[in-house]
Nucleic acid binder design. Sequence first.
RNA 1: GGAAGGUUGGCAGAGUGGUCUAAUGCGCCGCACUUGAAAUGCGGUUGAGGAGAAAUCCUCUCGGAGGUUCGAAUCCUCCACCUUCCGCCA
Length: 420
Amino acid sequence: MLDINFIRQNSEEVKKGVAAKNVNPQLVDDFLVLDNEWRELVKETDDLRAEQKKLSEERKINEAKELKNKIQNLEERLKQVETERQKILYQLPNLPLEDVPVGKNESEDIVLREVGEKLSFDFEPKDYLELAEKLDLIDIKRASKVSGSRFGYLKNQAALLEFALIKLALDTAAKHGFTPIIPPVMIKEEMMKGMGYIQSSMLDEEVYFLRDDDLVLVGTSEQSLGPMHSDEIFEEKDLPKRYVAFSTCFRREAGSYGKDTKGILRVHQFDKIEMFIFSLPENSLKEHLLMLKIEEELMRELGIPYRVVQLCTGDIAQPSASTYDIEAWLPGQNNGKGQYRETHSTSNCTDFQARRLNIRYKPLKPKTQNLKPNYVHTLNGTAFAIGRMLIAIIENYQQKDGSVLMPKVLQKYLGFKKIE
RNA sequence: GGAAGGUUGGCAGAGUGGUCUAAUGCGCCGCACUUGAAAUGCGGUUGAGGAGAAAUCCUCUCGGAGGUUCGAAUCCUCCACCUUCCGCCA
C-alpha cells in the first residue's frame, strides 16, 4: 500500500511509477477524486458527531435523536466511498526505485554480470531428469499417479541433498546474523493480502485456498514471515531483524499451462530456504545488496555458473520497488546447448508491505525531538529453492558415465562425493 | 468435537448505561532537589484520521464485526484468539 499523503502531494510522480509497472495510471486520478469526496464526508460526519455528543451530554434527547439519523445516513455514504477508495489503493503497485530500468517485460531486464566458468563437456550434457531417473533420484511417474501433474518424489541421494543444501544455507545466513525459523505454511487470507500478493482475482488463480478453514497455503515463506510482526513496533536498536526460513511452498501455476511441464522445474509443491529482513528505511538498499551478496556467495560456493539480472519496472512484482534475480546456468537444457534459468530472486519492498501490515519502529530520538513511529522496510530473498538447485547441481556436475559429482562444499554434509 | 472461564493503555490491574477526555500500581521520559546516584516531589507517557498558515480544535480507538440506546469498556448477536478440563492424536 502506498502512502496516501504521498499520492496526494506527488500525483504525477505516482502516475509515472504506476505506469512503469504496467498498471493504468488513470487509477491514480480515480483515487484522488474519491479521496476528496472521502475527506469532505469525514469532516461533515465528524462535525455532526461532535454536535450530537454535546447535545447528548446536555440531555437534549430529542435534538440528539434527530442528528442520529443524519449521521447514520452520512456514515453509510462514507463507508461506500471509503471502500471504493481502498479498493483502488490496494490496486496501486509499489513504485520502482530510481535506479530500476524502465521496461515493459522481462525482455528489457538488464544482465549485470556473469559469474563462474561454464564447463565445456567433452560429451553432450544431458538433461537433469534423464540423469536423475537413471540414478533413481527423482520419480515423476509415480508422483503423477499419486498426485497428478507437477509433482515429484525426491529419492535417495536427492533427498539427502535437500538436507545438505538446507544446512549450507542456514549456516551461511547465520554468519550474517539471520535467525533460523520454520514458519506456518497455512496463513489467513488477510495476511496474504497484506503482503500485496492477492489482488482479488489472483486468489483463485495462484493460491491454494482451504475454504473450510479460511486459510491459504503460502507460495513462499515470505508471506508467513512478513505478517509475523504485523501491528508491532520495533525499537530502532532491534533493527535490522533478519530471518532465514525453511518452508514448503505451494503454487497452483494456473497461469502457466503448458509451460515447463516436464520434471521438477515448475511444480505445485517445493521446499525453499528464504531470507527476510525488517530494516530501517535508510538501510534497506544496503540490506538488499547484502542478500544479493549472500545469494552469490552460495552459488559460488556450489561452483555453479550464474548471472545476475536486474529486473525492469514491468517485470517486478506488485509489492517490490527493486528486484534482482540470479539465473543459474543449466548446461543440459535447450537440447544440450545450455540455458540460464531463475533460481533466486531478491526484492526490496520498501514500506509497501509494512504500511499495510502496520509494522513500525520507534526511532532513537534526540531528547528534544519527539519522533513518531515510522514504517520499516521489508525485504526478501531466496537462499535456495531446493528443486531448482538440484537441477543445477545435477546438470553442472554430471560426468560422462552418467554419474554426478557432489560440490565440495556439500560433501561434509553429505558424507559422499558422488552419485552413481 | 464437547464444557467452562477469559481478552482493558509498554506491563499488571480496577471499572456492569451518563465528567471513562479509563482509577491505582509498576515501567519509561522530562524537570526539581543532590557533588553524583538512590530516595522523594511535580509533570508527561496508546495509536490513527480530519480541519487549519499556525496556535489549536474535532473524530475514532477498551480482541474484531454488527446491533440496542439521545448516550456503550459496560447490554445483545456473531466471529477470532487465549487458558483449563474431557475426547482424539504426533
